[in-house]
């Protein structure tokens, strides 16, 4: 599949000497949801800002559906809808006016029916005549999404889209993003909420200190880097892990009622069979067991620490 965004050798240095991006190479596939993870100051917003034309690159190229963002900026930008991290809104404007303004700015003819649909989908229709200053933070965030969607972009950039948004609203936004993906829109989102990436992304990129340190299919990533934990719920309490089981580095939890064994899903031998056998020999019986996959957050923290 040809990438819809192709970034190569992208570098951004400031006059102060600080280099925000160090020769980034990244391809975003058409129709996917790509989550860009990284700690604060890693370069996520700088990368998005350069692709959208808000920040000038120092060197490197970015192609959006084959259009260079500098020499063919009109064609490139017309494909992108941007929802920035900060809540930048025209406080004195009405929701209806500001969303229609965005559509006009992107050169699209008026389409009240489409704007109505977008506002309804984002639960903003009842507020269409309200001034933005009268809205809550979550509503303002949705207004920004409505503005980005107003010109029917093929690519949507969501920079920390659910920061400061309550759980219910966050899930509502995820639903909107899924619907967009189903309609063929490519979504690039940066987030601090790992669960957001875990919940929605097809692929995950990790950026740290201006460098892309990993790009991987989410499922593969979790499989590759994921460790699993086997939890054994004991029938009776034990005071300590028997010496014979020391090689398994078991954790005793829940007041001696639970044993946790961590194993690597990549290794040929997980050690589960021998553990269960040794447990029987040690006279430890369990009532139940379950396995838990490491979360993306744990994987991310491990990667960034390396």
């Amino acid at each position: 599949m040809s990438p819809i965004i192709s970034v190569s050798g992208l570098t951004k240095s400031y006059a102060s000497g600080f280099t925000a991006l160090k020769s980034i190479d990244l391809d975003i596939n058409r129709g996917e949801i790509f989550a860009l993870l990284g700690p604060n100051g890693a370069g996520k917003t700088t990368l998005i800002s350069i692709i959208c034309g808000i920040v000038n690159p120092t060197s490197g190229t970015v192609l959006v559906d084959g259009h260079d963002i500098t020499s063919a900026y009109r064609a490139a930008r017309s494909l992108i809808g941007l929802v920035p991290q900060e809540l930048h809104t025209d406080s004195f404007e009405t929701v209806w006016a500001t969303v229609n303004f965005s559509r006009g700015l992107f050169g699209k003819p008026k389409n009240p029916a489409l704007i109505e649909k977008i506002l309804r989908d984002l639960s903003l229709w009842e507020k269409k005549d309200s001034k933005i200053m009268e809205l809550s933070g979550g509503m303002k965030r949705r207004v920004m999404i409505a503005k980005a969607l107003s010109h029917e972009p093929q690519i949507l950039f969501l920079d920390e889209p659910t920061a400061g948004v309550d759980v219910e609203l966050r899930k509502g936004m995820w639903e909107v993003v899924r619907e967009l993906r189903a309609a063929g829109v490519t979504v690039l989102l940066t987030t601090h909420y790992i669960e957001e990436a875990e919940e929605m992304a097809d692929r995950v990129g990790v950026i740290n200190a201006g460098e892309i340190i990993l790009v991987e299919d989410k499922a593969k990533l979790m499989q590759q880097f994921g460790k699993k934990r086997l939890k054994l719920h004991l029938q009776s309490r034990i005071d300590a892990v028997p010496v014979a089981l020391a090689p398994y580095h078991l954790e005793l939890r829940n007041g001696g009622m639970e044993l946790v064994y961590t194993y690597d899903t990549k290794s040929e031998r997980t050690g589960i069979t021998s553990l269960l056998s040794d447990l029987r020999d040690a006279g430890i019986r369990f009532a139940d067991l379950d396995t838990v996959q490491n979360s993306l957050e744990e994987i991310f923290v491990n990667l960034v620490r390396k």
């Binding site: 009109r74 930008r77 941007l82 900060e86 930048h88 700015l105 992107f106 503005k147």
Partner: peptide
């Protein structure tokens, strides 16, 4: 901060 929209528009 709404200048972002102007800068990112075609």
């Amino acid at each position: 901060g709404t200048i972002y929209e102007l800068l990112s528009a075609p």
